[in-house]
Write a protein that binds this DNA or RNA. Structure first.
Lengths: 346, 346
DNA sequence: CTGAAAGCGCTAACAC
DNA sequence: GTGTTAGCGCTTTCAG
């Protein structure tokens, strides 16, 4: 039965591995490997009797099917990749979490790539990701090199870009116009009668786009931006507190500040309390993201709300629809609605 | 051009795929597939001349090597799995982020599995994870079924359990004793002269273990726990504010409250300000996790600090050492140090 | 330094 | 229902 000379046998008998494989199960159950495969993947096409024998063998041997091998054969990895700049930010954490939940329910594993805010070598990044042959891809919008863009196109898998609208969408999009957000916050402040403004934005292209949109709208209205400060990304509460201190010299008159995230806004509001700056009478504050910290702070903080969890879930739904074989259709490019939630700081 | 009879051709020529493969590159460069493989994986063993020709072909064809196929052959997936209950909590987000960074630098992709706080079907979970044949595994400590435990053992891959010490460690451990944390917080409060206590803990086994440790130490000291409230997991600021309101009836006398997370503690402190409860004179508060929100709040919140980022990085280092071929050694079971950071709320 | 042969563990496709 | 054959795209191994 056992022939020490034959190479394959010696390989199997080697050092430590106990990689029970489909042939082992098949042998133990007295069936062909294909039958084991059917028991696992299409149980209704196997007789109850055989199924029972195979199941027993699987359990007894502790067989865990090698999905990698199966994927190579079936050309489906049942893995999807998600590329985000960070998960330290609650926004992206929420997106990844809900995306992952939805995909896992559908039997997909998520490969997570955290790429940072600096667009370093996106080609290398996508090569590493696409090399694993994910069945689909979620990426955080726009700003890749042409070569990277080309790679994504040529991967021929469903792709959903989130968080930003793109001028050259690859496939599906769930995003919004960051400049427009800034513009609407400015409009909101202007309507409330403000005429002196400040911006605190993290050094992150989207945050700075929001700031730009804000600045442009303010300037167009003939009002002044007295301070436009860029903070390190990802933004922190500490940076917000610093920001308020930087703003202090300008607070001889009433002012409204737009922060590129709720963390910054919370820092501003907290430091304002310490410094005795009355909010909203003397300083109005608007954040971005509608995190719990802005809703549950005292005073609650005015902010821009987006459907963050919704984005992850929608992205999953988009991809799953495609993976189920449906083609592209209208409505694959979605503008995430946002709105200003007025609270006590403005 | 199109011949419906020849099966292989029709397969390749079919619908959408442009899967450039190693044989295509080899043909284009006039070498054997193996040489292409060498150019990619062991460039120093190929002549500069050949390398140049192959590189050119790779670039021209836009070849992205199929790492899945390579992995099947080499029996290394260069993927590692990370199983955590959530990434919505900054603690785990930090761990995953730093773990992912370290692994990615070493050429590994992270497969993320978010399992939730309810230990539902851990066997199915691990089957899905191990089926992808990760080269190594990070999991969030303890509490699996014997069958699941067995699966992990039989996978014969390096495993690191984080966040909790385990009574039956699978392999490596980077964790701490949650009951001990609770005990030390109690001791800290007792030394400060407190004799009436409360606990707010999320419905999560680790958080409740911390609460239990706290309660036991308090009781042993002959002091009273006037309120021991379980909150929904994951914990929120809102739950903390609710918690303080639940505590109000007991605040006729001085009291010290231990919260199972900084979010809860922040909620308590914020609501206390609203309700006019003086902190720390009338109510002392200690959180857990040392998130930015506790350090940067006004007043800054006393809390328990752990090396969260360090955990992710250490876990990666542990696994990478094993993946590099080193065997187990002393020091593979690490107690994460924690300490109470005294701030203005106690 | 380069190539040819033989799989990795599984499943699609086609018999029976 | 079940088995057989032939790969999936790569790398291991061994031969030159």
């Amino acid at each position: 039965m056992f022939d020490p000379v034959s190479a394959p046998a010696s390989r199997n008998a080697s050092i430590k591995n106990t990689p029970v494989k489909i042939t082992d199960v098949a042998a133990a159950a007295g069936v062909a490997p294909m039958t084991v495969s059917r028991v696992i993947n299409t149980p209704d096409r196997v007789s109850p009797d055989t199924t029972a024998r195979v199941r027993e063998a699987i359990d007894r041997l502790g067989y865990v099917p090698n999905l990698i091998a199966g994927g190579l054969s079936s050309r489906k990895s049942r893995m999807v990749a998600a590329v985000v700049p960070t998960i330290a930010h609650p926004m992206f954490a929420g997106v990844v979490q809900s995306f992952s939940d939805s995909m896992r329910q559908a039997g997909y594993q998520v490969m997570l790539s955290i790429c940072g805010y600096e667009d370093s070598d996106d080609e290398a990044l996508f090569r590493a990701v696409l090399g694993r042959r994910p069945d689909a891809l979620l990426i955080t919008g726009s700003g890749y090199s042409p070569a990277a863009w080309q790679m994504l196109i040529e991967a021929h898998i469903p792709v959903v870009e989130i968080w930003d609208v793109s001028s050259r969408p690859i496939d599906m999009v769930i995003g919004f116009d960051h400049a427009q957000v800034g513009g609407e916050v400015a409009a909101y402040f202007l309507v409330k009668g403000h005429d002196r403004f400040a911006v605190l934005a993290a050094r992150d292209s989207r945050a700075m786009t929001r700031a730009r949109g804000f600045n442009e709208a303010v300037t167009k209205a003939g009002a002044a931006v007295v301070l436009d400060q860029v903070m390190p990304a990802p933004s922190t509460i500490a940076a917000g507190r610093d920001g308020l201190r930087a703003l202090l010299p300008f607070l001889d008159q009433r002012c409204a500040v737009f922060c590129s995230s709720d963390q910054l806004a919370f820092g501003v509001v907290t430091e304002a309390r310490v410094q005795g700056v009355p909010i909203p009478e003397h300083l109005a504050v608007c954040g971005f993201g509608n995190l719990e910290i802005s809703a549950m702070n005292e005073p609650p903080i005015t902010t821009v709300s987006l459907e963050g969890v919704g984005t992850g879930r929608s992205a999953a739904a988009f991809l799953l629809r495609r993976l189920a074989g449906e083609g592209p259709r209208d409505g694959d490019r979605v503008q995430v609605p946002f709105r200003i939630i007025e609270r006590a700081t403005s």
